[in-house]
């Protein structure tokens, strides 16, 4: 029997209880991350991909709350714990957060404090999660900075985040995230704010580190190019739900859900110039969170919507014969 996945999320729902009403940011998300693999969560802004990531670490800001679902995390000893039921500030959650699962953000300054040197911050994190002497932790911090390709690591230990460039700051944050050798790294749009050349370097770095540690990655992005570069599996989200799930090759070469298909078509492709200067578009825009369509969330914008059905029936996530999953009525009779 194959090993259980490292992280298995089933039917996760995270809602925000605001004065204006309940915002169902995440409303039915299922996926699994295998050890040493990269899962990309792809979606446009407001689809709930970041909230999903934050739910896994239980760092959803109020008034948000994980209302249901399971987040099964396999510990090092093989036991499985449901993160969704752990106390948010409890000891076990603190050990998992930062120790076993680390997270990096789009904006490095949100995880690097401005008033401590990056060295101090890395050393402190190491001491928090590992039983080491201060000098051993320092050596480890220097190693961590070297591994993320920071030249002159010993000297840079004493620098403050504001003294580093954007790319170097991102590296420092990755070093901070990786210093405790986490088994899962959650990366929330880590390269979105970076320039292309820096983005390419950071992606190379992350791939290299993943191979080195056999670490799993949950990579959250809206950028199809990044997905193509880094993903093994892909989960496509729309309006808080997973609409499609498959391998990166299937998603790019045989997308099933009309949303995924339309999304792929609407991106300008290099070299397609001259053939057709108009891009295919998805009509309209993402509905306001308070005005979710009753049926399929994508139905009002969908070219293939079945009249009378898609607007009223909420489709289930269907598993097709090849293991590919899709949430769409067009495939409801093809379930494996």
């Amino acid at each position: 029997m194959p090993e259980a996945p490292l992280l298995k999320v089933s039917d996760l729902r995270t809602h925000f209880f605001t004065d204006e009403g309940v915002v169902k940011s995440v409303d039915g998300v299922d996926f699994a991350v295998e050890q040493g693999r990269t899962l990309c969560v792809l979606g446009e802004s407001g689809c709930g991909k970041s909230v999903t990531a934050r739910s896994i670490l239980r760092i959803v800001d109020r008034p948000g709350r994980v209302v249901s679902g399971r987040i099964e995390w396999r510990r090092k000893d093989g036991s499985v714990v449901d993160i969704a039921t752990l106390p948010v500030a409890g000891r076990e959650m603190r050990r998992i957060r930062g120790g076993e699962i680390a997270m990096i953000f789009q904006e490095p300054m949100s995880s690097l404090g401005p008033i401590h040197s990056i060295g101090d911050q890395i050393i402190e994190t190491i001491l928090l999660h590992q039983d080491l002497s201060k000098s051993a932790a320092r050596d480890k911090a220097i190693q961590a900075l070297r591994r993320v390709g920071m030249p002159d690591a010993e000297r840079r230990l004493a620098l403050y985040p504001f003294q580093l460039s954007g790319g170097m700051r991102q590296r420092a944050m990755i070093a901070l995230a990786l210093c405790c050798e986490p088994r899962l790294l959650i990366a929330d749009e880590p390269t979105t704010a970076l320039d292309v050349t820096t983005q390419a370097n950071i992606l190379d770095l992350m791939k290299g580190l993943q191979d080195e540690y056999r670490m799993a990655m949950l990579f959250i992005t809206h950028d199809l190019g990044v997905v193509a570069e880094i993903a093994d599996e892909v989960v496509v989200m729309y309006l808080g739900r997973v609409v499609e799930r498959g391998t990166v090759d299937e998603i790019f070469h045989a997308p099933r859900h009309p949303y995924t298909q339309a999304l792929l078509r609407s991106v300008p492709k290099l070299g397609s110039r001259g053939e057709n200067r108009r891009l295919a578009v998805i009509r309209g825009s993402v509905p306001h969170p308070f005005a979710r369509p009753a049926g399929c969330g994508f139905a009002p914008r969908c070219e293939q919507a079945i009249a009378g059905r898609c607007a009223t029936i909420q489709p289930e996530l269907t598993t097709l014969a090849d293991g590919h999953q899709v949430r769409c009525l067009l495939y409801s009779d093809q379930a494996a």
Binding site: S165, G167, M168, V196, T197, Q199, A200, N201, L203, D204, D223, L224, G225, V226, A228, E229, A231, V248, D249, F252, H253, V267, K269, L270
Partner: peptide, 26 residues
């Protein structure tokens, strides 16, 4: 270098392009 850093939007072509890594900073 700038062109080579553009992500290739096809997973099948992954690694097919020689990427020029720029050292140092702007």
């Amino acid at each position: 270098a700038l062109l080579s850093a553009v992500p290739i939007d096809d997973p099948r072509l992954r690694g097919s392009r020689a990427r020029i890594r720029l050292g140092g900073e702007v």
